[in-house]
C-alpha cells in the first residue's frame, strides 16, 4: 500500500459518502444518473466475487464489502425510496451499449479464460465507462449542482490517483497489470473535460454550467 493508492481509495470512499449524504439530506436524487449507479453496482458485484475465494487483507475485504453494499444502497434510494425525484426523462443513456462491448472485450482480451478472471476483466472495462450516463445527464441538463460536482471530482480523482499508484508500483515493486492500467487511463481521460470545468468554475464558487 502506497500513499497514492490509499488516497485513491479514500477519494473513492469520499465520493460514495458525498453521494449518499446528498440524496439522504436533500431527500432527492435529482441530477444523478441511476443508469451510472446501476453500472457501478454491476461493476462491484462482478469484481468482488473473489471475496469468496481470495483473502488479501482485512482492509481489502472491508472496502470491498463497503463498495458493494453502498452501490446497492444508492440504487435502492434512487429507484425505490426517492423514486419520485429521479430525473428519468434526462437519464436516457442506453447502458446496453456499454455492457455488451465490455462483455465481448472481456471474453476476448483477458489474462486467463476462467469465470472469475473474465468477470474481473469485465468489471474493469465496464467501470472505465460507467460514468458516461452521468456525464450525459449533466450535458443534457446543461448544469450540475455543486454537491454533484464534488461527487464527480472525488470519483474521477480516485482512478487518477490509481494511475500514480501504478507508476509507483511499476518502479518500486516491478508490478503492473496492463488491463487495469489501460482501462484506468480511459476512465481518467473521460473525466478531463469535467475536471477542467470543476477547477475553472466550481472551485471559484460558480455553478457548473455548460455553455449553451
Amino acid at each position: 500500500m502506497n500513499i497514492f493508492r490509499l488516497f485513491g481509495d479514500l477519494s473513492h470512499l469520499l465520493a460514495i459518502i458525498i453521494l449518499l449524504l446528498k440524496i439522504w439530506k436533500t431527500r432527492s436524487c435529482a441530477g444523478i444518473s441511476g443508469k451510472s449507479q446501476i453500472l457501478f453496482a454491476i461493476v462491484y458485484t462482478s469484481r468482488y466475487l473473489d471475496l469468496m475465494t481470495t483473502y488479501i487483507s482485512a482492509y481489502n475485504t472491508f472496502m470491498k464489502i463497503v463498495f458493494v453494499a453502498t452501490s446497492y444502497a444508492t440504487v435502492f434510494l434512487m429507484y425505490m425510496k426517492f423514486k419520485a425525484t429521479y430525473d428519468r426523462n434526462h437519464d436516457t443513456f442506453r447502458i446496453e451499449f456499454l455492457i455488451v462491448p465490455a462483455v465481448i472485450l472481456a471474453l476476448v482480451i483477458n489474462q486467463e479464460f476462467t469465470v472469475l478472471e473474465v468477470l474481473w476483466t469485465f468489471s474493469i472495462y465496464l467501470e472505465s465507462v460507467a460514468i458516461l450516463p452521468q456525464l450525459f445527464l449533466v450535458s443534457k441538463t446543461g448544469e450540475a449542482e455543486s454537491i454533484t460536482s464534488h461527487y464527480l471530482f472525488a470519483l474521477g480523482s480516485y482512478r487518477a490517483l490509481y494511475l500514480l499508484n501504478w507508476v509507483y508500483r511499476y518502479y518500486a515493486e516491478d508490478h503492473y497489470d496492463l488491463i487495469a492500467i489501460v482501462a484506468g487511463l480511459v476512465q481518467t481521460v473521460l473525466y478531463c473535460d469535467f475536471f477542467y470545468l470543476y477547477i475553472t468554475k466550481v472551485l471559484k464558487g460558480k455553478k457548473l454550467q455548460l455553455p449553451a
Binding site: 481509495d9 473473489d50 488479501i56 481489502n60 499508484n165 503492473y176 487495469a180
Partner: peptide, 10 residues
Amino acid sequence: TVIDHSHDEL
C-alpha cells in the same frame, strides 16, 4: 516483471 493475477487492489 510479473503479471499479476491476484488483484490485490480495489
